[in-house]
Simulated assay, not measured.
Amino acid sequence: MTETMVGIRLDLGADSDAEELTSVARRLRDELRQLDFETVPMPTVPPPPGAKGPVMDVLGEVWVSVAGSAGVAGLLDVLAAWITRGRGRSIKLELNGQVIDATGLSRRDQRRLIEEWIARQREIEP
């Protein structure tokens, strides 16, 4: 079964800050690991020129490996639950450089749209 790496971009709404977004991304990553999803470490970017701080986390990004439609369905269930835990939350998924935003759709429509999108992306993988 082919595994696919999917990027998840989190958005907590206008009232959130970088510290909160980083914390929430780490909690989501931990939750996915507990459910046996394979995640990658927090991505990092170098600090801006002249900054004296260490390398910084890329805010609000989680990358997870999913296999087959069961893996996609499980991931979507986790993400749907995550969205309902906080006001103003939304996600965008990235695969092969293509991004999809299913904000505002019903859970059923989100699942259908994302499953079809992932299937199309797998067809064009090199």
Rank of each mutant, 00 (worst) to 15 (best):
50 G>M: 03
50 G>I: 02
52 K>C: 07
52 K>W: 06
52 K>Y: 06
53 G>A: 08
54 P>A: 15
54 P>S: 09
54 P>I: 05
54 P>L: 10
55 V>E: 12
56 M>I: 14
57 D>W: 09
59 L>S: 06
60 G>M: 00
60 G>T: 06
60 G>D: 01
60 G>K: 01
61 E>K: 08
61 E>D: 07
63 W>M: 11
64 V>G: 12
64 V>A: 07
65 S>V: 14
66 V>C: 03
66 V>S: 05
69 S>D: 13
69 S>L: 10
70 A>Y: 02
72 V>T: 15
74 G>V: 09
74 G>C: 04
75 L>V: 14
76 L>E: 03
76 L>N: 02
78 V>L: 08
78 V>E: 13
80 A>M: 07
80 A>E: 14
80 A>S: 13
81 A>L: 13
81 A>D: 11
82 W>E: 05
83 I>C: 09
83 I>T: 09
84 T>S: 12
84 T>L: 14
84 T>V: 13
84 T>M: 14
84 T>F: 10
85 R>Y: 03
85 R>Q: 12
86 G>Q: 11
87 R>F: 14
88 G>Y: 00
88 G>A: 07
89 R>F: 06
89 R>C: 05
90 S>T: 07
91 I>L: 14
91 I>V: 11
92 K>H: 03
94 E>G: 10
94 E>V: 08
95 L>G: 00
96 N>S: 12
98 Q>F: 05
98 Q>N: 13
99 V>M: 12
99 V>Y: 09
100 I>Y: 06
102 A>F: 04
103 T>Q: 15
104 G>Q: 01
106 S>T: 11
106 S>L: 12
106 S>F: 01
108 R>A: 15
109 D>R: 09
110 Q>D: 07
111 R>T: 14
